[in-house]
């Protein structure tokens, strides 16, 4: 799905979203009740570079500075972080962290933040973009991943066929929407038949002040222990003070 098609389906009442530098998007859209939504995005599967991260973060900072608490929808089609010596030398970790921090700050400052993943996102770029929003929606055909299976096979020194077989028994490591949704990363996956406009308006009304992805992963059976371990640590924290 192209960004233009996606925007038309999400916001049939209209939008003024324009392309920015380095495969980015920014602008406003209108909901069916006339309320405004801020749109920030990355397109064309562009690997996340320091330039893209700082461009997106700058747009979000200006939205927060505006003070209107307008909801922010992030439209994401990236790749992994860009893999070059130059980017690492310049501190790509700081650029990715800055973007994740700014998206998180928007949420803490009263902006509803929703990421719509309509293409790819992987590894550190996935953390800094789609996973940094309060809620993640995927569109059919989206491809979120940590690392592709051939690369996991190389690092874990396991044959690819064995890994593929193991992936049938657990959602814990395989790429794709279904396993990531099972672990709690994705709230909803929308298909061609869904009314995206209705769906986004509903999602924007959901309360999202706390991070409940581990609860979701427990309910869906993809991450059975994370939530309970976190709760046990929290329960012991006060006792350890005495």
């Amino acid at each position: 799905m192209t960004p233009v098609e996606l925007l038309t389906r999400l916001f049939p009442s209209g939008h003024e979203v324009v392309a920015g530098p380095f495969n980015t998007l920014a602008g406003r859209a209108i909901l069916t009740d006339g309320a405004a939504v801020e749109i920030v995005g990355v397109t064309d599967g562009a690997p996340l570079s320091p330039e893209i991260a700082i461009e997106l973060a700058g747009s979000i900072i200006r939205i927060v500075q505006d003070g209107k608490k307008t909801p922010i929808v992030l439209l994401i089609d990236t790749a992994s972080q860009r893999m070059t010596r130059r980017d690492e030398m310049l501190g790509l970790n700081e650029y990715l962290a800055h973007l994740a921090k700014v998206v998180t700050l928007a949420g803490l400052s009263g902006h509803r933040t929703v990421a719509v993943l309509y293409g790819a996102a992987a590894a550190g770029a996935f953390i800094a973009t789609a996973l940094a929003a309060q809620t993640l929606i995927t569109i059919d055909g989206a491809h979120p991943s940590v690392m592709d299976l051939p690369s996991i096979a190389r690092v874990t020194k396991l044959p690819l066929e064995i890994l593929e077989k193991k992936a049938e028994t657990t959602p814990i490591f395989a790429p794709g929407v279904t396993p990531l949704a099972a672990t709690g990363a994705v709230l909803e996956n929308w298909t061609e038949a869904d009314n995206f406009s209705d769906r986004i308006e509903t999602v924007l009304t959901l309360e999202a002040s706390s991070d409940t992805r581990d609860t979701l992963g427990e309910e869906r059976g993809g991450r059975k222990v994370a939530h309970s371990v976190a709760l046990r640590v929290a329960a012991e924290f006060g006792k350890a003070a005495r």
Partner: peptide, 20 residues
């Protein structure tokens, strides 16, 4: 990588909890 999805989410949850 043996727990890639859980680990990725753990990083994202760590970021959010740390900023909290």
């Amino acid at each position: 990588l043996q727990e890639a999805n859980a680990g990725e989410l753990a990083v994202s949850e760590t970021v959010r909890a740390l900023l909290g």
